[in-house]
Amino acid sequence: MPRERLDQPRELKRSFRPHYDPEDFGRLSERIARFLGTARFIVYMTVFVLCWVLWNILAPDGLRFDPYPFIFLTLMLSLQASYAAPLILLAQNRQADRDRIQSEQDRQAREAGQAELEFITREIAGLRIAVGEIATRDFIRSEFQQVKAPQ
Rank of each mutant, 00 (worst) to 15 (best):
A115I: 00
L28T: 10
A39Y: 07
E118V: 05
I88C: 05
R27I: 15
P86D: 07
R14M: 11
W55G: 13
E4T: 08
L63F: 14
I32G: 01
E30V: 05
R34M: 08
E111R: 10
L28M: 13
Q146F: 07
F16A: 06
S29G: 02
S82R: 07
V43A: 06
P2M: 01
N56D: 08
L79G: 12
Q8R: 14
R5A: 06
Q105M: 02
E11W: 09
A130M: 11
F139C: 03
L87V: 10
S29K: 08
L6A: 10
Q102G: 02
L12Q: 14
E4R: 11
L6S: 14
F139K: 13
Q80A: 14
P67S: 10
Q80R: 04
R141S: 12
I101Y: 04
P22D: 08
A130L: 08
F48Y: 12
V53D: 03
E111N: 03
S15V: 10
R64I: 12
A130Y: 06
Q108K: 14
A91D: 07
W52N: 14
L12C: 05
S15F: 09
G62F: 08
Y68Q: 03
L79H: 02
H19T: 11
P67N: 08
L54R: 06
R34W: 05
L36V: 00
F35T: 14
L117I: 01
E30P: 05
I134G: 02
M45D: 07
I140W: 05
A130N: 09
F139D: 09
D138L: 13
A39C: 01
I124Y: 11
G26F: 03
L58D: 07
I120K: 07
R128F: 04
R137N: 08
F70D: 02
T38E: 04
A85C: 02
L12A: 14
V49T: 13
L54W: 11
T121K: 15
Q102Y: 00
F25L: 14
T38L: 04
L50C: 11
A39P: 04
E23A: 12
P67L: 08
F139H: 10
L73C: 06
W52P: 15
F70M: 11
L79A: 07
F144W: 13
Q92P: 00
D21I: 10
R122P: 00
G126A: 13
R40S: 08
P9R: 12
T74Q: 03
S15M: 05
F144A: 14
E104Y: 02
I71K: 01
E104W: 01
V47Q: 08
I32M: 15
V49N: 04
G126Q: 07
D66C: 13
L127Q: 07
R40C: 09
